[in-house]
Design a protein around this nucleic acid. Structure first.
Lengths: 199, 199
DNA sequence: ACCTGAACACCGTTCAAGT
DNA sequence: ACCTGAACACCGTTCAAGT
């Protein structure tokens, strides 16, 4: 019987993944159970809440992003390492419709299980930020919560814009815009650059 | 009977406003009708869709923001005028939970009635942007759709963060951050400023 | 242990019937 | 003209009953 339960869980997860891709984070739970050929009660036994389901689906991605932050920290200089990681974070966060919202909620609502699941990933990202700030690549008066809020907001906005198109390109563009600011790129100070033309 | 219908409409609008403040853009339509002491069918007669309701509630605000853009264009220099207007746009957009999402949707979905209702406001904002770009206050490679997308994303993100607190302060802060960029403020070029200390 | 599905409490939306 | 509310088709969630 134990094997039966395990098989149910796997089938639920598989159909959940498909449903998330198709319908986003508020895919019908009844629908997932139905497609998995399982009673709704069985669904709730395995995943007592929508968040628990998300957690199960996303856990390994969280861990992968944590590891990625550590790799980037070892392999790249502080500024580019943060930029590269944020790009991957945004790509992940934009994977399902509604995911940016679900993750952003966990940033402040510390009680939820999904919060705990994200925490490692966010700590890793925050370390990357601190390193970039020490190197002077990122303004010092920015904290990790602000950064995650802004980046999530951007991802969400791009996601709303493109229902059909994946829109990776425009999300990258948005990241560049917030890095450089709407008033234009800041000339790097260490090796002095050619001056901006005053239009 | 005509007076009766008109009274119903007004009562529905009044209760809709209250419900939007309390429950956000996806307040229960049945609930609004119930509170207004009116059958659900009557609700649908007056407002055939949730969007139609939003449009009726927000129309005068759209118009006010359009007018405000024109006033600012006359009264202030290009850069500050845009900043001031964006601040007001964000404040309006953050008035109800879900409003930023509803408005952003209309940016691309041109078929909806709410899109038409927003258009004037957005055109006015776009003019302010163009003026700021001509003056060199805002980077030239930014279009109005991008700007509205980014600003909406920011407003949404701040709104998610603060369920209880209105959080005006942090939205302002976010606006400053995207104007200046995460890599720090760009020194203004026209009147040369004191140099940034290299940390 | 694990599963099932009826039951409950909610939605949005439509439409035949009333005045 | 305008209003009503039952009807339909969906939800999420719980829980008594089954194996």
């Amino acid at each position: 019987m134990r094997a039966n339960a395990r098989a149910n869980r796997e089938r639920l997860l598989a159909h959940a993944r498909a449903a998330l891709v198709r319908h986003g984070t508020d895919a019908s739970l009844e629908g997932i159970a139905r497609e998995a050929g399982v009673g709704i009660g069985t669904f709730y036994r395995h995943f007592p809440s929508r968040e628990a389901l998300l957690e199960a689906v996303l856990q390994e991605r969280f861990d992968a992003l944590s590891a990625r932050a550590r790799d980037l920290s070892a392999a790249s200089s502080p500024g580019p390492a943060l930029t590269a990681w944020l790009r991957e974070f945004m790509e992940f966060t934009g994977a399902y419709r509604g995911l940016a919202a679900a993750l952003l909620r966990t940033l402040h609502d510390t009680t939820t299980p999904l919060h705990a699941a994200c925490e490692g990933m966010r700590t890793a990202g925050a370390a990357l930020l601190a390193r970039a700030q020490e190197a002077g690549a990122i303004r010092a008066d920015l904290d990790a919560v602000e950064l995650f809020t802004i980046v999530s907001g951007l991802t969400w906005a791009e996601e709303q814009a493109s229902t059909a198109v994946p829109g990776r390109a425009s999300a990258d563009r948005a990241l560049i815009l917030i890095l450089e600011g709407l008033n234009g790129p800041r000339p790097t100070t260490d090796p002095p650059q050619e001056p901006r033309q005053s239009n």
